[in-house]
C-alpha cells in the first residue's frame, strides 16, 4: 500500500465521519424537537451552524493554548477515527488499524478533553474552569466501568486488537453483546456519559455554566470544536459497534448499526432529566460497575 492510497483513504474516512457525525447531530435535534411536539430544524442544520461559525469575520483568541485547543481536539478525533477499523476486510479503509490498539484508543480518548482543559485554562473564565472540572470528574466516572468491560472482553478473547475482535465476530457469526452480555450492559450504561448527552450534560450546562468549557470560544474555534465533537462521536460509536456488535463490512451496515446505538443515547437523553455531578458519578459507579464485575466473573468461570 503506497502513501498516496493511505492519504486518500484517510481523507475519505475523515470526510465520511464528519458528514455522518454532523448529520447524526442534526437528526438528534430533529428527534428531540419532535419529542417536544415541535417541528424542529432541518437535519442539515448543524452543517449551516458550522459553516456560519467558519464565515465569522472576527475570531477572538486569548493566547497560544486557546488557539491550539480546538486543533488538539480535532486531531485526537481524527486519530481515533483512523485507528478504529471502520470497514472489516476492506483494504482501502484499513487506515491505521494495526494490531494491539484497544489500549491505545483508551489512552487517546481523554486527550481531547485534556487539550480543551489546557486551552480553557488560558481564557481565565471561571465558568470554563468549573466545566472542565466537571468534565474530568465525569471522565473518571465513565471511564472505569468502560475500561473494566473492555478488559473483560480482552481477557475473554485473548486479544487487545479491535481488528481481531471484529474478525472473531465475523468468522463465528456472533456478536460479543450476546457472548458476554454483562460487559455489553456495562458499556451501554456508560455510553450516554461518554457522549456527554442525556442526563450527563453537566459539562455544557447552559443554565448555570454558560456552556462551560466553550464559553470563551467563538467563531471558527467553536466551528472546529463542533466538527471535532461530531467526528469524535462517530469514532466512539464505531468503536462500540466494532467491539460489541460485530463491526461491519460496508458503510450502509455501519450506519445502521451506529445509528441504532445513537438512537439509544438520544432516547435516554429525552427521557431522563439532568443529573448533578455527584449524582452522575454515583450512578456511573452503581449498576455499570456491578455489570462490569459480573463480566469478570463470567470470564473467570467460563
Amino acid at each position: 500500500m503506497n502513501i498516496w492510497n493511505l492519504l486518500l483513504s484517510a481523507i475519505v474516512t475523515t470526510l465520511l465521519g464528519f458528514i455522518i457525525g454532523v448529520t447524526y447531530m442534526g437528526i438528534r435535534r430533529k428527534i428531540v424537537a419532535l419529542a417536544q411536539n415541535r417541528y424542529g430544524p432541518p437535519i442539515y442544520q448543524n452543517f449551516l451552524d458550522i459553516l456560519k461559525f467558519w464565515s465569522k469575520e472576527s475570531n477572538i483568541y486569548h493566547g497560544v493554548m486557546h488557539h491550539l485547543a480546538p486543533l488538539w481536539m480535532i486531531a485526537m478525533a481524527i486519530t481515533i477515527l483512523l485507528i478504529v477499523p471502520t470497514q472489516y476486510g476492506s483494504k482501502f479503509f484499513e487506515n491505521l488499524s494495526f494490531n494491539g490498539d484497544l489500549i491505545l484508543i483508551l489512552y487517546l480518548m481523554p486527550f481531547g478533553q485534556l487539550g480543551m482543559a489546557l486551552g480553557v485554562g488560558q481564557t481565565g473564565n471561571p465558568n470554563s474552569a468549573i466545566g472542565v472540572t466537571r468534565g474530568l470528574s465525569l471522565l473518571v466516572g465513565s471511564e472505569i466501568p468502560f475500561i473494566m468491560a473492555l478488559i473483560a472482553v480482552m481477557i475473554q478473547y485473548h486479544t487487545t486488537s479491535v481488528t481481531d475482535l471484529v474478525r472473531i465476530q465475523q468468522e463465528h457469526h456472533t456478536w460479543i453483546m450476546f457472548s458476554s452480555p454483562f460487559a455489553f450492559l456495562a458499556a451501554l450504561c456508560v455510553l450516554p456519559a461518554m457522549f456527554h448527552a442525556g442526563p450527563y450534560e453537566v459539562i455544557i450546562a447552559p443554565a448555570e455554566l454558560a456552556s462551560g468549557p466553550m464559553s470563551e470560544f467563538g467563531g471558527k474555534y467553536l466551528g472546529t470544536m463542533m466538527s471535532a465533537g461530531s467526528i469524535f462521536m462517530f469514532a466512539k460509536l464505531t468503536l462500540f459497534v466494532d467491539v460489541f456488535m460485530g463491526g461491519s463490512t460496508n458503510w450502509l451496515w455501519l450506519i445502521v448499526k451506529t445509528f441504532t446505538v445513537y438512537l439509544f443515547v438520544i432516547a435516554v437523553g429525552i427521557i431522563m432529566p439532568r443529573l448533578r455531578t455527584e449524582q452522575a458519578i454515583r450512578r456511573l459507579w452503581g449498576w455499570p460497575l456491578v455489570f462490569a464485575i459480573l463480566a469478570f466473573i463470567q470470564v473467570a468461570l467460563f
Binding site: R38, P206, E216, F217
Partner: peptide, 22 residues
C-alpha cells in the same frame, strides 16, 4: 423558542455566551 411557536424551525437557537451568539 419552545413548543408553541418553535423558532428553531428557522435555525434560531439560544447561545449562552456573547462569544457564540449572533
Amino acid at each position: 423558542i419552545t413548543s408553541r411557536y418553535d423558532a428553531e424551525r428557522f435555525g434560531i437557537r439560544g447561545a449562552a455566551t456573547p462569544r457564540q451568539a449572533d
